[in-house]
């Protein structure tokens, strides 16, 4: 495996030394570009109390291109699809090399607090979120309880 760029080493060290509250990101033992991530559901959101597993991969040309991030834990959210793919501008066309793993994960956590059904990735979820927000939030809470609170 080719040498790891200094930037990735630094980011990893800083993530360990000054972890972001509510977020843990640990590099895989065999691949320093692959991170096991856990994000806690933000307070006052339907995801509160949940622990959401994600995977984050730094592509070869990182930081010139964005990290690839995906939810592994099932989540009921209009901007996250069944496969866990996330609709977030900074992961696509609004990426900038001044962003970091830390800022990406904070943005994902913020997306949980502020679902945006007008820019959907999961169409059925977004639709319900628009026509019956109360029911959508109930579903999100139920999924959080069912998939993000098991102790395993």
């Amino acid at each position: 495996m080719a040498a790891l760029p200094r930037r990735i080493i630094k980011e990893t060290q800083r993530l360990m030394q000054e972890p972001v509250p509510g977020i843990s990101a640990v590099p895989d033992e065999s691949n320093a570009r692959y991170f096991h991530v856990i994000v806690t559901g933000p307070e006052d959101s339907p995801f509160e109390g949940g622990l959401f597993k994600l995977e984050l991969f730094l592509p070869e040309d990182y930081p010139m291109s964005a990290p690839k991030v995906r939810f592994i834990t099932k989540i009921y959210h209009p901007n996250i699809d069944r496969l866990g793919r996330i609709c977030l501008d900074i992961l696509k066309d609004k990426w900038s090399p001044a962003l970091q793993i830390r800022t990406v994960l904070l943005s994902i956590q913020a997306l949980l607090s502020a679902p945006n059904p007008d820019d959907p990735l999961a169409n059925d979820v977004a639709e319900l979120w628009k026509v019956n927000e109360a029911e959508a939030i109930r579903n999100a809470k139920e999924w959080t309880q069912r998939y993000a609170m098991e102790d395993n």
Binding site: E55, K68, L83, K92, D93, D119
Partner: peptide
């Protein structure tokens, strides 16, 4: 924002597949 639906799903489903076997670049 937007256009997420159009972006074809070339995302690796398991990102571990991308484990780097990169060489010269």
């Amino acid at each position: 924002m937007g256009n997420c639906l159009k972006s074809t799903s070339t995302d690796d489903l398991t990102l571990l597949n991308g484990r780097s076997n990169d060489s010269a670049r």
